[in-house]
Each structure stands twice: as structure tokens, then as C-alpha cells.
Amino acid sequence: MKIYYSKHFPPKGFAAINLFGIIIGRKEYGNLSKYELNHEKIHSRQIVEMLWVFFYLLYFVEWLIRLAQYRDSLAAYYNISFEREAYSNDKNLNYLKNRNWYSFINYIWHD
């Protein structure tokens, strides 16, 4: 997994972004923690199982749906199923060893 650091990307407030399996961390936040790296590794697995393009397509469509639902872009982001799975499991460093394919589906519907 390649990790790069940038002064301007991702946007402030976000430590890293995963673009096609390449991690870009925000330089001013320092090196990514093991939990942030695990979060991005979870996204890498999601990206592969969704054949790259479908991950980003579904991610954007779900963000639009959540935006209509919550009327807040940040709340929409945190409630995307891919993000919910990654945030729920990023502290479990063994998660990917036992994760089933398409596990993000379990995070689509919630209260």
C-alpha cells in the first residue's frame, strides 16, 4: 500500500483519503496512526471487491441519498455504508482477517 502526504489534500478535517488503493494523508496532521491506516485498508478491500469504479459510483450515490436524508454533508459522509463499516472496525486491527466479502452491506440500513 502506497502512502503519500500532501499539504492541500484531503480537505481539512480529514486525515486521509483512499484513491484506488493509494492513501493520501494530510501532511499537517503527521503520520497516520495504525487505526487510520486500518480504516484505509478496510476501504482498500471495499474498493477491490466493488471493482474500483463501482465503489466510487455507489459511494457518491449513497452520499447523495444520505445528503437528502440528513441535509448535512458531513452527516451524510459519516452515514455512508462504506464509512460506517470502516469507522466501526478501524480499532480492530484483526478485522480484515475475518471480514466477509461485501460486509459493508450490513451497514446500509440503520436506525
Rank of each mutant, 00 (worst) to 15 (best):
Y29K: 05
Y29L: 12
Y29I: 06
Y29A: 04
Y29S: 00
G30P: 12
G30W: 02
G30N: 05
G30A: 03
G30H: 03
N31R: 10
N31Q: 15
N31A: 15
N31F: 11
L32K: 00
L32V: 09
L32A: 03
L32E: 01
S33C: 05
S33V: 01
E36R: 09
E36D: 11
E36G: 09
L37S: 03
N38P: 09
N38Y: 02
N38T: 10
N38V: 11
N38S: 08
H39L: 00
H39N: 05
E40Q: 07
E40S: 01
E40K: 00
K41A: 08
K41G: 05
I42L: 00
H43M: 05
S44A: 12
S44Y: 10
S44D: 14
R45E: 14
Q46R: 05
Q46A: 00
Q46H: 08
Q46W: 04
I47G: 01
I47M: 01
I47T: 07
V48D: 13
V48E: 15
V48K: 15
E49C: 02
E49A: 01
M50H: 15
M50C: 13
M50F: 11
L51W: 14
L51N: 11
V53W: 10
F54T: 11
F55L: 07
Y56P: 12
L57F: 15
L58K: 13
Y59E: 08
Y59F: 01
Y59C: 02
F60S: 11
V61Y: 09
E62I: 08
E62N: 01
E62C: 10
W63P: 07
L64N: 06
I65F: 03
I65D: 08
I65C: 03
I65A: 00
R66Y: 06
R66I: 03
L67A: 06
L67K: 06
L67G: 09
A68C: 14
A68W: 14
Q69F: 02
Q69L: 10
Q69R: 14
Y70I: 06
Y70P: 04
R71A: 07
R71L: 13
R71H: 10
D72S: 04
S73N: 11
S73I: 14
L74V: 11
L74A: 08
L74R: 11
A75C: 14
A76I: 06
A76Q: 07
Y77G: 07
Y77L: 09
Y78K: 12
Y78R: 04
Y78F: 14
N79K: 08
N79D: 08
I80D: 07
I80M: 05
S81M: 10
F82L: 02
E83F: 01
E83D: 04
E83A: 05
R84Y: 15
E85P: 09
E85V: 13
Y87L: 09
S88M: 04
S88C: 06
N89P: 13
D90N: 15
D90P: 12
N92I: 12
N92S: 02
L93I: 09
L93G: 10
N94W: 09
N94R: 11
N94Q: 12
Y95R: 03
L96M: 03
K97P: 13
K97G: 08
N98I: 15
N98V: 15
R99Q: 13
R99F: 06
